[in-house]
Design a protein around this nucleic acid. Structure first.
Lengths: 202, 202
DNA sequence: TATTCTGCTATACGATCGTATAGTATTGAT
DNA sequence: ATCAATACTATACGATCGTATAGCAGAATA
């Protein structure tokens, strides 16, 4: 089985049916949630039948595992491609930017994670743990290469990285909804208030 | 395995069956989401049969409407009880505190709103619109009584109020999960980083 | 060419869902 | 005491869910 780690921006028609199914499910999960998405809806969106979904992914749990592994691969691929040169701060900034680019290229990632991470009881996957591990390894790598900032403890730094990158994206839909309701749909977009999310040492 | 979520039976015992059903559904929705909560689970949690749930609320939509009206009533009741005396800033601060107290007394409100507000596509209710209206009226009242701050436009101020009060509560579970994973379950609790959520004029 | 394997469709099964309906018990007004 | 409305239970129906199974077409292997 070949594994595509790098992101190939190919259109759906060039993909295998298995990848098309995963992508269809990914998009539906991000928009409507796993519970509200039936296997039949996934099959229809991918242009196949229900049986083929089961054939490739066994169960709905297996489908979610494939999606979450795909998300981890996207994060890893984004981080991996920035070279380890420059100061620690420069590397960290370059990684932040690479992840931000990946997120804006893959809005389904944000939608999926928003549901998964903010629904601690309902979500049955392990995506938060996997991404936290990845971020922890990212911080550890920086520490090995140069001198990581000692101003923050490692844990705080990992949490800070993830919250800064995801928190604003998670809350933005709420701001957008309220802005539309209060200011009307055709108000000047650049009057919209800016969301700021950060963590502080206690 | 029977797990009671949220409401203590002591409180429940002297309520009408209709209120018990609403409270049971409210707690279950907050913890597991509406889609993952069946009418039969609600009935069992309330100690009645499915038929009675339908008798009192007609449909599942009707049940959600009752819950969301209850939430609006809780917000209104919290705001209503602070007297209109002192400076505008003092009134606003007292209202913020009253709402914060209400939220800590009713954790199901936070859980329910977190699901509803962060799921703009999936949610079928109107709770965000209702609460935004309420907050807008709150700002308007302050403007009538005294002199509301002109430093921010009304819309920004409304959004600021709601984001400050809810944003931190929404993201906190994510911080908690990561903190537990990284620092271990028995780490010093006061080392945990603090979440800061705010909005800025653009 | 014969056989096996893989990608894929079609259909069906049991569980669970929201809801409708019919009937019983309890209350409240006259 | 009567009677109607309300509170509540029991059961059933149709739809939809995840998944199991059987079979077919075409490529691969020998």
């Amino acid at each position: 089985m070949k594994k595509t780690v790098g992101v190939s921006p190919k259109v759906n028609s060039d993909l295998t049916a298995k990848a098309r199914i995963r992508n269809a499910a990914f998009a539906l999960y991000a928009n409507y949630g796993e519970d509200a998405t039936s296997m039949r809806a996934i099959a229809e969106a991918a242009g196949v039948t229900v049986g083929l979904v089961v054939h490739h992914f066994r169960t709905k749990d297996g489908l979610r595992e494939a999606i979450e592994q795909h998300i981890v691969d996207l994060f890893f691929g984004a981080i991996e491609q920035v070279p380890l040169e420059g100061t620690t701060a420069e590397i960290a900034a370059a990684r932040d930017e690479a992840v931000a680019d990946m997120l804006s290229d893959n809005p389904a990632v944000v939608g999926y994670l928003r549901r998964a991470l903010l629904d601690p009881m309902g979500h049955r996957g392990r995506i938060l743990e996997m991404l936290t591990d990845l971020a922890a390894k990212q911080v550890a790598t920086l520490r090995n290469v140069g001198v990581a900032s000692k101003a923050h403890r490692d844990s705080s730094q990992v949490i800070g990285v993830m919250i800064r990158q995801l928190g604003q994206l998670f809350l933005q839909p709420m701001v957008d909804s309220m802005w539309n309701q209060l200011a009307g749909p055709n108000a000047a977009e650049d009057d919209k208030p800016l969301l700021v999310v950060k963590v502080q040492e206690s």
